[in-house]
Design a protein around this nucleic acid. Structure first.
Lengths: 341, 341
DNA sequence: GATTCAATGCCCCACCCGGGGCAGGTGACG
DNA sequence: CGTCACCTGCCCCGGGTGGGGCATTGAATC
């Protein structure tokens, strides 16, 4: 015996049918302090000095280098919206210029900074993240630049501080203890003044970035910044969630929107329960009204939607599903009933 | 007064429901014969022959060229999900290699091809789109390749046809009249077997693509293909081009498959008419049987599907729509009724 | 041959649905 | 103030639905 789904008309979806939107958009939960991909990166010769860039070559003029950039970039694009985006992006940049302590920061306009993803060894996490968040971030030149309407998409520490970093309190109290000798960021501006920074550093044994390396990094700034922005929009608008459930979502949307342009709020309540399979007596129980009132509402619904029975109503509903896309979140019945142009 | 759809149970679809080729899903209406951006492109020297690529240079090894590619690519990324995506993408490719008659095709697994965007002059639209859609597309080597699990992201016509294009009926009956001398595509595979192709051609006065140009185009294949795929996964595009046509097709499929694994052939006939909104008396007329026989079949249907009324049946049908994908053309009810794993 | 299923069709009966009528109370609007 | 829409709820009544019973014929299976 089939029974109607357990659904609270106030909007709580039944787990058996509509559990598609219980996901959290907080990135921190998805990226543990120990990054997933640290193991594979540990197989790379990261402990060896980076080979010095030859002075005979200009930035990215080698066909193999460019081919690799396009290939890696494609993988980054393919990872847009997924948990692999940040590690893939970092790997792509590492394929052009090596750097240490990769980290992605969300500088929120109204909240403290959040680390979205990082590949910092455990020994350095305290200085890079924990201590940084206890206060020094406010003096961080990158943070201050990020929060004051930045115009560029790539910044290097030495340029921001104009060579006066060592004279600052930030340097003395914090930066000198981080054990790094150079730093640069890719910056992506989001809506409402928030910013995502991709932070790249150099340890002493790898030396500061060369001018050649800076030139290469600068060349990549535009696509990288746009990719980060696109990634944030991807998830923020829950695009992947729309695609993944597909029909599930559309039917749920139909339950909620069908007839909304023609019915009163209470009639909509009764209609939604009907569409979800509830009988008259169960609907009355759920809404806390009399059986006769449900019947009265049903009659109003039939009159307004110009049908004669529940069967007709259901058929109308099923047929209106074809107009969901055009309705764009509005009542599909309005599209279905309008003269075609 | 709503009346049931006019549908022949032998398989003839009702125009009121399944006329997606005659409705707003025809994308021709959204793309006028004169493309929006032709004005700005007209400022470029498109009427002059393309400068021949110098044999002294390898593909994309000039720093200015690469810098331009990254810059243009960033604009494409920024346009992801918007109406400017396709024109921006085409402009970026044109910045590397010039081509004629840009067009973007959606080859849907279940529907005829649809043109998503084009920059074809009005005089050539009939041959490129209208005539193509009347039949020749089925013999198009690119279409056939696209529909048969393509593995590459870039195809050139001469390679696909292995130099035998002129021997084909497709060439004699259609291609020879298009006035083009070369063709290549970027191919992006979507979910469920659908494909988007970006089609590039050359007119006689511009000559076929050189090997150098092919090499450049090939180098760009990965990011371009991934960008197109990412664009298709954005909200607006997915709903209007992929999900909605998918829903129409899926509902039609549901009408035909729902309950098929549990009912007799005659019961299936009666059920399909019920689902499509036909009453008992009209069903009897259509099937050439007595009203009482229809009733008897209905009782059998309810017993076999374990429901107590037509209302229950409709709700079961709507809920089983969520299992259509998993059923893969089979009876979705079998999936819906099985214990979840 | 016996059994089961499918297709067809007649009958009885309880009951819910859906059309209609009526009513009271509240709030918004001209 | 009058009108309308909305919410709530009671009643009457005709009719179709859905449960059940029974029957005949044909095909398939053991």
């Amino acid at each position: 015996m089939y029974s109607g789904p357990e659904y609270n008309v106030l909007g709580e979806a039944s787990p058996s049918l509509y559990t598609t939107a219980n996901r959290s958009f907080l990135y921190r939960k998805r990226f543990p302090d120990k990054p997933q991909y640290l193991t594979s990166l540990a197989c790379l010769p990261t402990m060896l000095p980076y080979p010095a860039a030859s002075s005979k070559r200009t930035a990215m003029n080698d066909i193999n280098q460019l081919s690799k950039w396009n290939r890696d970039l494609s993988q980054v694009i393919a990872a847009l919206g997924s948990a692999q985006f940040f590690p893939t992006l970092i790997a792509a940049i590492q394929g052009q210029v090596r750097f240490d302590y990769p980290q992605i920061w969300l500088y929120h306009r109204d909240l403290p900074p959040q680390v979205l993803y990082h590949e910092i060894p455990a020994a350095a996490v305290t200085a890079q993240i924990t201590t940084y968040l206890e206060g020094p971030y406010r003096e961080d030149p990158f943070y201050q630049t990020s929060m004051n309407q930045p115009r560029s998409k790539f910044y290097r520490l030495s340029r921001i501080t104009a060579g006066k970093l060592r004279e600052t309190e930030y340097y003395r109290d914090y930066y000198a203890d981080t054990g790094t000798v150079d730093e640069a960021i890719y910056l992506s501006r989001l809506q409402a003044g928030s910013v995502i920074n991709l932070c790249m550093m150099r340890l002493p044994r790898h030396g500061a970035f060369t001018e050649q390396e800076y030139e290469t990094l600068y060349l990549l700034a535009e696509p990288i910044s746009e990719l980060i922005k696109s990634h944030s929009e991807h998830d923020e608008f829950a695009v992947t969630h729309l695609i993944q459930p597909g029909i599930d979502h559309q039917i749920d949307l139909a339950f909620r929107t069908f007839g909304a342009s023609m019915l009163s709020p209470r009639e909509k309540d009764v209609l939604e329960l009907m569409l979800r399979g509830y009988g008259t007596d169960t609907s009355a129980d759920r809404l806390g009204i009399a059986l006769e009132t449900v019947r009265r509402h049903r009659k109003s619904i039939y009159r307004k939607l110009d049908v004669s029975s529940q069967t007709d109503l259901f058929s109308l509903f099923i047929n209106s599903l074809t107009c969901l896309g055009q309705a764009a979140g509005d009542d599909p019945l309005r599209i279905y009933m309008s003269p075609s142009q």
